[in-house]
Structures are given as C-alpha cells and as structure tokens.
C-alpha cells in the first residue's frame, strides 16, 4: 500500500469489531481454513465475522488465474487438502451457520479443475449440519459441463457462478481464460440440469466503466440463460496495480438496476454498493421460501 486511492465514498465506512473478528479468525486458523473474506480483503469482514458469518474459500489461498479486479494471490497452488471438507463442516457447526457460501480459487492445474472438492465439501456439510443451506460459488470449470454436472449432482441450494462484468469489459477485467460466453454457458447448463430446489445465481460489479445499455444487455443474457438470482455491487480497487476503478456508482443507479432487473424476471436481486456474492446470501433463499 503506497498511496490512498480516489476518495472513498461515505458508504465504505464500516465499524470494526476487533474482538469478534479475532474469534472467527482464530477458529478458521485452528482448522487451517481460508475465507474469501480475508483473502479478498472484503469491506464487510467486520460485520460478517462480527455476526459469525464467513464465506469459505476451498482449494487453498492461491489461484491459477490472474483476474485484474481480484485480490486473491496468483501463485502456484498447493495439493488438494482432503481434510478440508470435514474442517469446513466443523467450522460451520461451531459458528452455527444456517446458510453457508463456499467458493474456491481457480484450479486449472487439477484434472477435475476442483469440482470434486466442491462435492466432498457439500457432502461433509450435509452429514455434519444437515440443516445448513449451501451456496456454491464456482469457477467456470473452463466451460466443461460434465464438471458442472458433478457439482449440481450434489444438490446445493444455490449454484452461483459470477459473470463479474459486461461482455465488452470481460477481457479487460478477468483472466484471458475466463470468457463471457464460458460463464454464460455454465449458468445456462446449471439452469437446464439442476435438480429441483437448486437455484442459479450470478453477480456483477459496477464501476468498471460499463454503460446502462451494457448492463441491461447482460441482464437479458442472464435471463435467457435461466438465472434466478442476481447480485450487483460496487467494485473496490484492491491496490494501484489492479484494474483501475472508473466510478463510484451513485446509489440511485443501483436502485434503478434493481427495478429493471426485477422487471426482467429475476426471482431475487441484491443491488447495493456493499453487496458481494456471499453478503447476507440467505436472504435470496428466504425470498423464494426455501428453508431446511
């Protein structure tokens, strides 16, 4: 960190609760678990850890891809930890989570691209805390639908894969291996092959230089692919080396996108600056009446 970036808006002001953040952090350290909250330096970490919520990031802290918006390290990943599924389930049990979000780094180095670890984690959670609803936020699995199918067969309540941005900006914002059409194909496949009771979700960031028309075109693509839930949040540039923030998007535009998205037919839309994929994610299931 060298210089403060563009002046931050007031809504990026959060309360820090050191005691509660420490408690959750210690539990995660004991179980050798990573969270996307910590690895991505999420602005909501104080609030979420303070209320005993965490989004687990499986398959290690290092990612094989180098997306220009993301703060997760791009390094050679470690071998798969086969004790991780049990540890995730134990942490969920200790934290008493009713809903959990499980995401991962991209693992282009593995033959299964990490799909089977998602399955093992889902199975471990079902075994230890069967009342917990599960949301997986997966990589694009290079668009390989048999791998998407393996995860769908484990029947998470929510299958989430993030588009991240509009079509034009995708090659500028994401790793060159992550294409708009791969991601759309993953979501379409998930919609067509998910078991009843599994909802399909995606998310985009604003402030990257997208236009209204481009956002609406992306919404149309997502509706056509059968996506149920959409999350829209503000991009916050992790460091001066990352993709340059173009705009702090005004709240009114988030509200406009919410209205338009609901009119287009999404079942649930979260649209607000601090919305992240996993932030208060159980609300969407409550909106469609799903509990376990």
């Amino acid at each position: 960190m060298t210089t403060p970036q563009t002046k931050k808006p007031a809504w990026l002001r959060v309360r820090y609760d050191q005691t509660q953040v420490k408690q959750v952090s210690q539990l995660l350290d004991q179980l050798h678990l990573n969270t996307v909250c910590a690895e991505a330096n999420c602005p909501n970490i104080g609030e979420c850890f303070g209320t005993g919520t965490a989004a687990f990031m499986i398959l290690g802290p290092n990612c094989t891809r180098n997306c220009h918006f993301c703060d997760v390290p791009h390094k050679r990943p470690a071998p798969v930890d086969l004790t991780e599924p049990l540890h995730v389930a134990q942490a969920i049990q200790k934290l008493g989570l009713k809903h959990v979000c499980v995401t991962s780094t991209d693992r282009d180095d593995l033959p299964d691209l990490g799909a089977d670890q998602f399955v093992r984690v889902i199975q471990a959670i079902r075994h230890l805390t069967p009342q917990t609803t599960i949301e997986v936020l997966t990589p694009d699995f290079q668009g390989k639908t048999p791998l998407v199918q393996r995860v769908l067969a484990a029947q998470p309540e929510v299958f989430n894969h993030n588009m991240e941005t509009v079509r034009r900006l995708t090659p500028l914002v994401r790793d060159r291996r992550a294409t708009y059409d791969h991601s759309l194909a993953v979501l379409r496949y998930a919609h067509q092959h998910a078991a009843p009771g599994t909802y399909v979700k995606t998310g985009i960031m604003l402030g990257l230089g997208e236009t209204d028309e481009e956002v609406y075109a992306t919404m149309d693509d997502l509706i056509a692919a059968g996506v149920d839930f959409l999350s829209i949040g503000q991009y916050v540039q992790p460091s001066p080396k990352h993709y340059q923030l173009r705009e702090w998007v005004p709240m009114e535009r988030f509200q406009t996108y919410y209205r338009v998205a609901m009119q287009k037919g999404f079942k649930f839309v979260a649209s607000s600056p601090l919305v992240r994929s996993s932030y208060k994610a159980s609300a969407e299931l409550a909106a469609v009446g799903v509990t376990r």
Binding site: M1, P4, Q5, K8, L12, R13, V14, R15, Y16, D17, N41, C42, P43, G46, V236, Q237, P238, S239
Partner: peptide, 10 residues
C-alpha cells in the same frame, strides 16, 4: 483507511 474500506475504530 485501508485499501478497500474506511474503518471506524472504537
């Protein structure tokens, strides 16, 4: 202020 957030420290 850190990279992503302004924190109020009590």
């Amino acid at each position: 202020e850190s990279e992503k957030v302004i924190s109020e420290v009590p």
